[in-house]
């Protein structure tokens, strides 16, 4: 059976354009607003949705996504509610892939086996678990593949030729290339570096390659997708959410419209040729 992720990348290829992957944290700034946002992301131009599972200690994330996790947790978000949000989304959209991204402890606490079953049932397509490198594949990666989910791994500028086979093994759906050395949202992506890195990766894999970390604008999206199959925008969208909050942290009525407007704007980067 072909999964939604493969189907979506095949469709993008047929259209002859790059894809836009949008990241937001589930439950940010509150579970209801977040649900409304996710539901409308595809229409605003998101080709794939990456949904953050909030965690108190997101060690690979910069200040913007750390803050989004804290907002969500403060508003009562849990892993169970994240899975419910996915199920809610699936009621109106059976095609847009959803990838859950996060850290292992909440999943471990939920119970790995139960999580995989509930995630699959909710309509999740793939998982990115930042603190599970290939060395720990038996924890969740192998059971996830057995459960029919894509396991998406990050390759980074430190992933050398010696390390790459370990990273590619068990990776499916797409490969996520981290375009900068560092945490999310902190540096500016460099087109030449991305091009060289993607070319290097293509020598080792036929999988679609998405590039993320440091992609903030329509023109970033445009230039990155010249080389890669998709661009991931996270912190910039999350910052837009942060700018649409009252001082007490609650959402302004304009939040959903404004954030979707921003997504629409950056989505032009993959549609303007």
């Amino acid at each position: 059976m072909t999964g939604r992720i493969e189907a979506r990348f095949a469709a993008l290829k047929a259209e002859g354009r790059g894809g836009l992957v949008t990241f937001i944290t589930a439950g940010d700034p509150d579970p209801e607003t977040s649900k409304a946002l996710v539901r409308r992301l595809p229409k605003a131009g998101a080709d794939l949705i990456e949904l953050g599972m909030p965690f108190t200690d997101p060690m690979a994330d910069g200040p913007a996504i750390q803050a989004s996790s804290q907002r969500a947790l403060r508003a009562g978000m849990t892993l169970k509610l994240t899975l419910e949000a996915v199920a809610d989304f699936r009621e109106s959209d059976d095609e847009t892939p959803i990838i859950l991204m996060g850290y292992f402890n909440p999943i471990y606490s939920y119970g790995a086996g139960k999580f995989l079953k509930d995630a699959k049932d909710a309509g999740v397509d793939g998982l990115i678990v930042v603190d599970l490198p290939p060395e720990e594949d038996s924890e969740l990666c192998e059971p996830a593949i057995a459960a029919g989910l894509n396991w998406i791994r990050l390759a980074t500028p430190t992933t050398d030729a010696k390390r790459l086979p370990a990273v590619l093994k068990n990776t499916s759906g797409f490969l996520y290339y981290v375009s900068i050395m560092g945490i999310t949202g902190t540096k500016q992506v460099q087109e030449d570096d991305v091009r060289a890195a993607v070319e290097r990766l293509r020598e080792h894999t036929d999988m679609p390659i998405a590039v993320g970390f440091g992609i903030k604008t329509r023109s970033d999206v445009q230039s990155v997708t010249q080389a890669a199959d998709a661009a991931v925008v996270g912190s910039a969208i999350v910052n837009k959410i942060a700018s649409e909050l009252y001082e007490d942290g609650s959402a302004r009525p304009s939040l959903v419209t404004e954030v979707l407007g921003f997504v629409r704007e950056i989505a032009i980067g993959v549609r303007s040729e």
């Binding site: 292992f104 603190d131 490198p133 060395e135 791994r153 430190t158 992933t159 050398d160 390390r163």
Partner: peptide, 20 residues
């Protein structure tokens, strides 16, 4: 070899840090 003391320990870090 994997840094485990029974079920504890291990190397639960982001890929960027693994080579290091």
């Amino acid at each position: 070899e994997g840094g485990h003391f029974g079920m504890f320990g291990g190397r639960f870090v982001a890929e960027t840090l693994m080579p290091l």
